[in-house]
Nucleic acid binder design. Structure first.
Lengths: 333, 333
DNA sequence: CATCGTTGATACAACGTTGTAAAGAGGTCG
DNA sequence: CGACCTCTTTACAACGTTGTATCAACGATG
């Protein structure tokens, strides 16, 4: 039913290995035989059995990608780019969804095994240092996003502190005086960094940092942003600007503001983080930190490639990818 | 470095097959041996080589999922649900992105081969009937979304005509008289069906159907919706309601309306299609057709399972999944 | 002419797993 | 006690592929 090398060989009247040689472009095959084999290949519609090939070659042909959820726009976009980048290395991408829980993230890392994938790109939200112990089983790992915890693993991200500074400095430069932040979360590495950048920019501008202006968020979904914003607007002296740690929080925040009759940006300016496609079309459109997602995906793939190709292992890399501030209506002048 | 059955067998002092039997839960193993094997399994941290196992078993362990782009919210959400549903059958999901071009869709179908996946879920945008010829190589295929073309393939979708009728009837029931549609596209199966539903509902209400109110859209992205809406609003007598063939078009349309000073829903009501998460938080939030995406994903997986399990092949199935109308602010009362 | 290198083809083993068959140990039953 | 079960284990082959070793034919070289 499905043609194998053996079938093709029988049809062409040569050995299995000769067919394999033709398929793999081995140089020394008599033109006559090559012709016959190619004919037979076409006739049978032969397609190599990737599994068998990889078994023999000792590779899997897969890269695992661990994300919280594909339905989160940032990760949907990122996954698409990773798949595209992986194609360049003849890799297929296996996607694991963890819902951002430590439990599931541990399970994914563990189930990874050395047979499932040649490497893995992980975007952890809740993993702790000890989880990384021997879990990866020697599979090259690349982490996306900052790690709060100190783990000797390759790592790709933008400079979250600088990016947050840039975002908040934009707000201060517009003359905003009461600037809040949404997204504080002790379990997220990035949250601490973005918060640090926020504080630096505020200090730089000599602005106050009332503790109630740093609002926590559990899941970074739209709903969390709306709730946090509702709280901020209920304060006796609400902020006149908010830095949200991702775009979804910002979208939720804008809705909460609108529902309470606050105008964006007139009454309150909003900055997001991620530059998801949604942010360009929201009403108002969202000023946001725009990481170069293509660069992140490509760099991650390159790092894995490098680990696999080099025999001895080298120092864990820490690559920072470019970003910019995308100014839109939500901080309009 | 990585433990195989052989290593475990040596350590436990039994044959490879006995270890295999323990791993696979075969009943007749002497308790003593079972204990020793389990001990050895734990000691070596054995994990089965999925590739080898599947080679032997004649299955791949993979389901292919073909979508235009993961960055499109609907497909990001859908892919996440498909992955979850596939886990229930011990399948991993391989995602192919086609950008919705016929070229890439053909290539994906062809490269599918019988070795890559045990089945495939395809969401074609541009494929024609003849493309399906012998491409799938006997791999069970499930198509999502309507097929304009007549192909004997399993098929899961909501009733697009009824859904469109429901959406437009909602607009007519609100007293809207000049109702336009955005998303006409001769290459998309669903477009024709949604257009049919639109026409039925208009006819039912005795409303006019000026040809310029049916606006084409090439890619169903936000940008296309904005452009189409710009056109509609430039008409001497613009519509007072628009039915968009998906949420992204609607989001784009709402932006174009806002930019031109039209209020939604006061001046113009808008209905979308897909109920992506974004639509619940847009300003205004979007009334939209809400397909049961979980049901779609699960049904698709079930159909593939059924095809694989049954020996003789049966009639192509045509399963319709539930949907509802989610009423929100964009058609407010 | 013996030797050597190049070209071309093949048989065999191996990657890690599991199905099949076969065989040994032990017990039961007529 | 021989025939016939049940339980338990194992050797072997096979899934489809490719690396290694081998071999044969040929022409060139000394």
């Amino acid at each position: 039913m499905v043609a194998t090398l053996k079938d093709v060989a029988t049809l062409a009247g040569v050995s299995v290995k000769t067919v394999s040689n033709v398929v793999n472009g081995y140089a020394f095959v008599k033109p006559e035989n090559r012709r016959r084999v190619e004919q037979a290949l076409a006739e049978t519609g032969y397609r190599p059995n990737v599994g068998a090939r990889n078994l023999r070659r000792g590779r899997t042909g897969f890269i695992a990608l661990m994300v919280p959820e594909l339905s989160i726009p940032y990760f949907g976009e990122l996954a698409g780019l990773v798949i595209t980048a992986a194609q360049g290395q003849d890799w297929s991408v296996l996607i694991e969804q963890t819902q951002g829980t430590r439990e599931r993230e541990r399970a994914s890392l563990e189930s990874l095994g050395p047979h499932m994938a040649d490497g893995a790109i992980v975007s952890p939200e809740a993993l702790e240092a000890e989880d990384f112990g021997d879990m990866a089983h020697g599979v090259p790992l690349v982490m996306l996003g900052e790690h709060a915890v100190d783990v000797p693993i390759d790592h790709v991200a933008i400079d979250n502190v600088l990016a947050a500074e840039l975002a908040v400095r934009h707000l201060t430069s517009l003359g905003r005086k009461r600037i809040a932040a949404i997204g504080q979360n002790p379990h997220r590495g990035t949250a601490a960094l973005r918060l640090a950048g926020y504080r630096t920019a505020l200090a730089e501008a000599g602005l106050p940092q009332p503790p109630e202006f740093v609002v926590p968020a559990l899941n970074y979904h739209r709903r969390d942003g709306a709730e946090a914003m509702a709280y901020l607007l209920s304060l006796p002296e609400p902020p006149d600007a908010v830095f949200c740690f991702n775009d979804l929080l910002a979208i939720g925040a804008m809705r909460a503001a609108a529902e309470r009759g606050f105008r964006v940006p007139a009454d309150i300016a909003i900055v997001g983080f991620d530059n998801t496609e949604e942010s360009a079309y929201s009403l108002p459109s969202l000023t946001t930190i725009a990481p170069d997602k293509t660069a992140i995906a490509q760099t991650a793939i390159d790092l894995i490639r490098r680990r696999i190709d080099s025999t001895e292992d080298f120092e864990p890399q820490d690559v920072q990818t470019p970003f910019s501030l995308q100014i839109r209506e939500s901080t309009g002048n």
